[in-house]
């Protein structure tokens, strides 16, 4: 099945695509303006979408810096650069599906990044609880990347009581 960038195409993808890899065709969607610089793996607008998703995955309140106040986006970009390309190729398309999928999955005419926090949470919950394994896999890919990257930030560790790596290891500065 050839993915289409139409509403019908989205529906078909959500329901029947057997592999996230097929979603890579969706990269043709128009990019959004963003103040973020492009990463090695993600474009600037993809990083902006990732940031808006991750801000709802990790909600630290006042206890720790928010996701986008740290270098977690850079960490995500670096991790995806380090992973094998077949594993990461679908991620840009997945991000766009989250961003624009609100039209299809949530019946709302606002992109994910321009929705309220409550709407964003509801949208992510829809992904997490979807009866389609592909959507659930997509959610967990973004969730797990967000969590791994956020909790890799040294400035977050005091809020959770983690002392961090030891300094006497080989190769340590």
């Amino acid at each position: 099945m050839e993915p289409k960038t139409t509403r019908r195409g989205f529906l078909a993808l959500a329901g029947a695509t057997a592999s996230l890899a097929a979603l890579s065709q969706l990269r043709a969607l128009p990019a959004q303006a963003s103040a973020l610089p492009a990463g090695s793996f993600f474009s600037a607008d993809e990083l902006a979408i990732f940031g808006s998703v991750a801000e709802r995955i990790v909600v630290p309140g006042d206890a720790a810096p928010r996701f986008t106040q740290t270098r977690a986006l850079e960490t995500v970009d670096r991790m995806c650069t380090a992973l094998s390309p077949p594993l990461t190729e679908p991620l840009p398309a997945l991000l766009r599906l989250v961003e624009y999928g609100t039209f299809v999955f949530d019946f709302r005419f606002a992109r994910f990044s321009r929705s309220s926090a409550e709407q964003q949470d509801a949208s992510l919950r829809g992904w997490m609880e979807s009866r389609f394994a592909l959507r659930r896999l997509g959610f967990y890919a973004l969730r797990n990347l967000s969590l791994l990257a956020y909790y890799a930030q040294d400035e977050v560790w005091p809020a959770i009581g983690y002392a961090g790596p030891l300094q006497d290891r080989k190769g340590a500065a």
Binding site: V59, R143, L148, Y150, A152, I160, G161, Y162
Partner: peptide, 22 residues
């Protein structure tokens, strides 16, 4: 922290509250 966070279900403020007790 990262793996523990991945192993804890859910997301959002409740998830972070669990992580504060890491």
């Amino acid at each position: 922290p990262g793996l523990s966070a991945v192993n804890l279900p859910g997301f959002g403020s409740d998830h972070f509250a669990s992580m504060q007790r890491f």
